[in-house]
Write a protein that binds this DNA or RNA. Sequence first.
DNA 1: ACATTATTGGCACTCGTTGCACAAATGCAA
DNA 2: TTGCATTTGTGCAACGAGTGCCAATAATGT
Lengths: 210, 210
Amino acid sequence: MSPFSVSDRLRPVSSPAPASPRGRPEATSHTAIEQAAFRLFARRGFSATTLEEIAAEVGVGKRTLFRYYPSKNDIPWGQFQRTLDDLRATLAAMPADLPVHEAVHRAVLEFNRFPPDAEPGHRDRMRLILTTPELQAHSVHQYAAWRGVIAEFVARRRGCAPTDVAARLAGHVSLALAITAYEVWLDDEAADLAEVLGRTLGELERYLAE
Amino acid sequence: MSPFSVSDRLRPVSSPAPASPRGRPEATSHTAIEQAAFRLFARRGFSATTLEEIAAEVGVGKRTLFRYYPSKNDIPWGQFQRTLDDLRATLAAMPADLPVHEAVHRAVLEFNRFPPDAEPGHRDRMRLILTTPELQAHSVHQYAAWRGVIAEFVARRRGCAPTDVAARLAGHVSLALAITAYEVWLDDEAADLAEVLGRTLGELERYLAE
DNA sequence: ACATTATTGGCACTCGTTGCACAAATGCAA
DNA sequence: TTGCATTTGTGCAACGAGTGCCAATAATGT
């Protein structure tokens, strides 16, 4: 969870190569495309906005958009995949004496922390992703990668394979918690995401303890 | 979880209207389409199989396929939505003194029980769904409906809204458990789904208890 | 036969996506 | 300057999913 254009995040993610030294200069950027796209999505809606329109708004050819994003559905997720390195690092930095589930929870909290001024944009982005059918579906792929990071961490800690029940489950359940929290957070304009995440975890414990 | 063609299930789901007394008779059926489709999917793979090919194999026009299934991605899920009534009924029939999470767990077990001879087909179907990217994504919509049923049940029991954290969480977590179990089950040809489901739940308790 | 009714299925069209070939723009070296 | 390697942009053609429209089809009932 926690998509984002790299620029939204606190710590920049791995430096994206110092621009090309040679060759034709890039005509646009991920950020520019996202901004143009979100502008149109807000106006006409996601599915009603065609790639041609986005291309026109950005000022490039439709074909070029595909050099920046593998698909229309990937635009709202921006540079998400890159931020997974952050998540991996955060997990790796967790104290070894911390219970696994606790370490994961803290990492998820950290992963979903944004500077206050970036929150409105983040809300809009998440609302778009979590309420647009096509995007809900497509997000599965981002989620899978996210779960993979969690599963790998748990596997290393537990000394088992990432495909082991324990590791897989940790990934799936953490995601379940995160998405639940996001849904609740989106429902309440005044809610604080970190607080909701914590509350959701507590709710899980209560659910199982009955 | 537990997609299927109605015919696979133990108890048939609501009678689908006694066929039309008037008008042109139907040229095919859901079952026929699914069989033809799975035959082609097995041969050329899901994405490499076009709707035209399926239509040809079935012996109807491409246009007609869309009268039976809203999209190509819906074919593998068969009549899933209808079986949700079963799930709803199973949940409603759970003894009131059973803890909510226990009731849900039992209902999920029941929902995923198939006659032994239907298992091989079920395995293939699930493998296709859980390993084909397009289908993984599209399944989100079936999952959402499934979660909705769980959420509604929990909400009724808890006396809260289905959009409440508790209800939503129950839906998401139950799904997380089910999918994890399915993944593990698919990895092990000899595994018993019910057993894996139980083991997965135990794993969750262990994970949180650490 | 004829009206009614429900389903079929062809046709045209939109849109996302991809492969391919080539143009454009830049740095670098001769 | 000129030419070349390099990198990115972009038009074109084509494919496949999905949709609206509407005429054709095949059964029932009168």
